[in-house]
């Protein structure tokens, strides 16, 4: 069974169809890239899966359980981790505290008034930071980190809730080109090692074709192609609606 199964997903804004009848699935340990021109419906799709938007119709299931109608908070609780296009971390806290808080929240102990934060899930936090290569910077304040490192912290925070699905919205946006491959390699390694399904959007085609197992392409709210990077690359329709215009056949 797929980890994430999306079926017939549709959404319209004031009569304009943003997403219509999109279906796809992501398996455990698989990296699926969602690409397409601006306004193709990628963000709308993403926001329906993460709970910020309610779909007009269609189903979204995580390991057989529906996510439709749940708040982002509950969706996290059901096993979905996220990274944001512009990193969202707790700037006033240290790297370690960011991860500790996510672990506490996963254990539903984030409301405790009487325990001490210092000792909570210390080993687990260090293990996660080790995995993303941020163990040495555990004591640094998040607001002072380099952007690339912030992305790694975000990854560790997302992994702290032991997700079965990881949603990454433009994971390499805002990063220097040289750092991008490294971050994706890290994410891919973790996903495959922990059997996490990964769905990501991305504009950098080197990232998409270098790291995705499969690619889906949206245009005008519809799914127009799906397949391996090589297949999608060769697809005439993709070439016509996405970059490069009608050049392949001109």
């Amino acid at each position: 069974m797929s980890v994430l199964a999306v079926n017939g997903l549709s959404k319209a804004f004031g009569g304009v169809r943003a997403v219509s009848g999109v279906s796809f699935a992501v398996d455990a340990g698989e990296l699926l890239a969602m690409i397409g021109p601006n306004g193709a419906g990628k963000s709308t799709c993403f926001n329906m899966i993460n709970g910020q938007l309610a779909p007009d119709s269609g189903s979204i299931e995580l390991e057989g359980k529906s996510l439709v109608g749940k708040a982002p908070r509950e969706i996290c609780r059901s096993g979905v981790g996220r990274t944001f296009q512009v990193t969202a971390t707790f700037g006033s806290m240290t790297v370690r505290e960011n991860v500790q808080l996510a672990l506490l929240s996963h254990a539903r102990a984030q409301g405790s008034l009487f325990s001490s934060m210092e000792e909570s899930f210390l080993d687990e936090a260090h293990k996660l930071l080790q995995q993303v290569g941020m163990r040495e910077q555990a004591d640094r304040q998040c607001a002072l980190l380099a952007y690339g490192d912030l992305k790694r912290v975000e990854l560790a925070v997302a992994l702290a809730s032991r997700p079965r699905l990881l949603l990454m919205d433009e994971p390499t946006a805002g990063m220097a080109p040289a750092e991008r491959g490294a971050l994706m390699q890290l994410a891919a390694g973790l996903a495959r090692g922990e059997k996490i399904a990964v769905l990501f959007t991305e504009h950098d085609m080197d990232v998409v074709f270098g790291h995705a197992d499969r690619v889906i392409v949206l245009a005008d709210g519809e799914l127009i192609a799906e397949g391996s990077p090589t297949e999608v690359r060769a697809n005439a329709q993709v070439r016509s609606v996405y970059l490069g215009g009608e050049y392949g056949d001109a």
Partner: peptide, 28 residues
Amino acid sequence: WKAIYSPFGYALRAGRDSPLRADAIGID
């Protein structure tokens, strides 16, 4: 003061620093 350094206090700061992220890790 103790509450500020309890998980609850951190959850508060989390909501202040980044409501988006706090929500995404399950904090109300």
